[in-house]
Amino acid sequence: MKREKVNFIKSSIVPLPISNIDTDQIIPARFLKATDRNGFGDNLFRDWRFDENNNPENNFPLNNPKYKGTILLAGENFGCGSSREHAAWALFDYGFRVVIAPSFADIFKENALNNGLLPIELSQELCNSILNETKQDPSTELEINLENQSVRVIVSGEQEYFKINAYKKSCLQNGLDDLDYLIQLRPDIEQFEKAQKKEVIATNEI
C-alpha cells in the first residue's frame, strides 16, 4: 500500500497531558467490530469526548475549538494496554499525524509507525514547556523535521532531537510498508526454513 510520505510537519498542537492513556480509551472495544480500517476517527476517545447521551464533553481538549492541529501531545506511557491497531487508525483517521509524549508503550509505537503516524518521544521538560506555551497561546506551532529528527518550537526556538530507527524512518519518508519487503524476501525465508528446520520448527511439523 502506498502511504503518504512523511517528512516535514508544521502544526499547532492538541494537548492531552494525561499519563498511561491506554488503547481502550483511544478506541473502546465496542467499536472494534468493523472489518475494514475506515471511520474509526469518529469514535476516537469516545468516552472522554462524549457523555452518555452522546453530547460533547466541553472540557475535553479535542472538543475545545481553541486547540487545533495534527499533533497530539500526551503524557507518559501513551498507548499502553491492548495491542489493537485500531488505536493508531483512529488517531490517523481523526486527522493526527504525530503524537508527542515523554514515552510510549512498545506495541502502540510499532502500530503507529506502521500506519504513517509518527510517535515522537521528547523530554518531560520540553513536553511541559510546549504544554505551557500552548495553554498561553493555542496557536503555538511546532516544526518537525524527520530527516534531521528534530522538533522545534517555532516561537521560542526551543529544539530537541528524537530517536527513530533507521529502517522505520526510511519507510515513513518513502511511504513504504513492510509487507512488500517481506513478500519479496520469501525465497530467503524458505532458505532459512530449510536450514533451521531441524533446530527450530521440528516439533511444528509433527
Binding site: 495491542s83 506495541i107 510499532e110 502500530n111 506502521n114 530507527n165 513492510d178 509487507l179 517481506l182 513478500i183
Partner: peptide, 22 residues
Amino acid sequence: FGIGTSQVAQVLASQCMIVTKP
C-alpha cells in the same frame, strides 16, 4: 508477544515480521 494488525499481515504473508530487539 502481541502484535498489531499490520504485523499480522506480515506474518500471514511471510511467516516473518520486522521487529526491534527488546
